[in-house]
Amino acid sequence: MDAIARPAALALRSLSLAYFVQATGALSVVGSLAAIATEWGLSDAQTALLITVFGVTFALAAPLLQVAFGHLPRRRQVLIGLAVFSSAALAFALAPDYRALLVARVVMGLGAALIGPVLGALAAGLVEPKQQGSAIAMVLLGLSMAGLVGMPLSAWMAQAWGARPLFVAVAAAGLLTVVLIRLAVPAQAGGQAISLTTLGRVLTDPVLLPAYLVVFFIAAGAYTTYAFIAPIIRDVFHGSAHTVSAGMAVLGVAGVLGNLFVVRAARRYSADAMLLAGMGLLALDLVLLLLAPPTLALLFGVLLLWAFATDIVWPSQQRRIVELSAALRGVALAVTASFVFAGIAFGSALAGLLYARYGYHANLLGSLALLLLAAAFLALSARRAQLPGWSHGAE
């Protein structure tokens, strides 16, 4: 396959930075639960709700914002979304109480809902069709770098300086990314004007609907354990705040390796095969945690495998939706992002419930059950895609 041209590669890297900022701002709550709870006098469950409310907002808003603003050029959508997201991050840093924190997270979710669904479609439009898998993986490298740099750095900043400076930094990074994207990403024609009827058709397509449910159950399965990784490290593995930061760094290193692997493997293997491989590795990880004694050596080994697996899964599921949805990939990716964050919200809420009532092993079993549901819907979607008469139902 021909290499991606340098101007397009630079544009893809700037979009990757947008993903980095969004993911760090969205998920930094995971690594800074203690600092946020201390700053505003909250419980772990209240702090975890800040993850859930972001996910619910994103899930509801992403497709509706594409109906309202999908006709705008995708670059403009990303720039508006980043500006809203960054402003809300600053409002979070200045929040006087828990209610203001929740409102700020809702607005951050609205900004992210305009960014995330568009990045994959924008990346795919910058390259030839045969390069789309690699282009999407390049953009999603920002998600991996959020794990490598953003998450451990945010955990460290929250511990060393407090939660408020952390979100000021997120706001500043978002505004700097706005400038970079304006310089590096070429202006394009308008996006897709999406009607509610079209949105309904994309949501109910017999192949795409189970494909979205694959995404939902993978995200829910991952976050049923991952959302409470900081309390789990503290209570089960008897780690300190420094251990949490180190764990986030391990996740990031392995995530980058996983993403680099996907960039190359996407040229040889189908999205379905990559998804199955990533889900299998996640299930193996959960089984290891269930059966092995909780030691720090096990923890770091499991985190390595966990991040590698999730970074196979995320770009592969986006690539699969792009391949299935054809001309309406923009709205299909928006719906996909909604299902991702709905899964994150559901998994995060379930994580708090299971951990508080039944303990760590219940989180692991819940994650395994949700991954099994994801595998079942992947098989259903693949089988329906092979039926005679179906051809890119979203066209």
Rank of each mutant, 00 (worst) to 15 (best):
A327F: 01
G347M: 07
S338D: 07
I344L: 15
A342Y: 07
R329W: 02
Y355M: 14
R329T: 14
G347D: 06
Y360N: 06
V335Y: 03
V340N: 10
A332H: 01
A332E: 02
L353C: 07
Y360M: 08
A334H: 03
Y360P: 06
L350T: 03
Y358M: 12
A326L: 12
A327P: 03
V335N: 00
A342T: 05
V340E: 08
G352S: 13
A334M: 09
F341P: 02
Y355T: 07
A327Q: 13
R357H: 15
R329G: 04
G330N: 14
A327S: 13
F339K: 03
A327N: 12
A334D: 03
G352V: 02
S338P: 02
R357C: 08
Y360Q: 07
T336A: 11
S338I: 05
L328C: 05
G330A: 14
A356T: 14
L333H: 03
A326Y: 12
G352I: 01
R329L: 06
V331W: 02
Y358W: 14
Y358A: 15
G343A: 09
L353Q: 13
A332L: 07
G330I: 01
R329M: 09
A334I: 11
A349Y: 13
V331E: 06
L328S: 09
A356L: 10
A342V: 07
V340D: 03
V331G: 03
Y358K: 09
L350I: 06
R357L: 13
A337G: 13
S348M: 06
G352N: 09
A349Q: 14
G359F: 11
G330W: 02
Y358F: 14
A326M: 10
L350M: 13
A349L: 12
Y358H: 12
V331S: 02
R357I: 09
I344K: 08
F339Q: 00
I344S: 11
L350W: 07
Y355E: 07
V335F: 11
R357A: 15
A342G: 15
F339D: 01
G330P: 10
G343C: 10
V340I: 11
G352T: 11
A345F: 07
A327T: 11
G347V: 02
A349M: 11
A327D: 14
G343S: 09
L333G: 01
A351G: 09
L354K: 03
L333D: 01
L354C: 07
V335P: 01
A342P: 04
I344F: 15
R357T: 15
F341L: 10
A337S: 15
G343R: 00
F346N: 01
L354I: 09
Y355C: 04
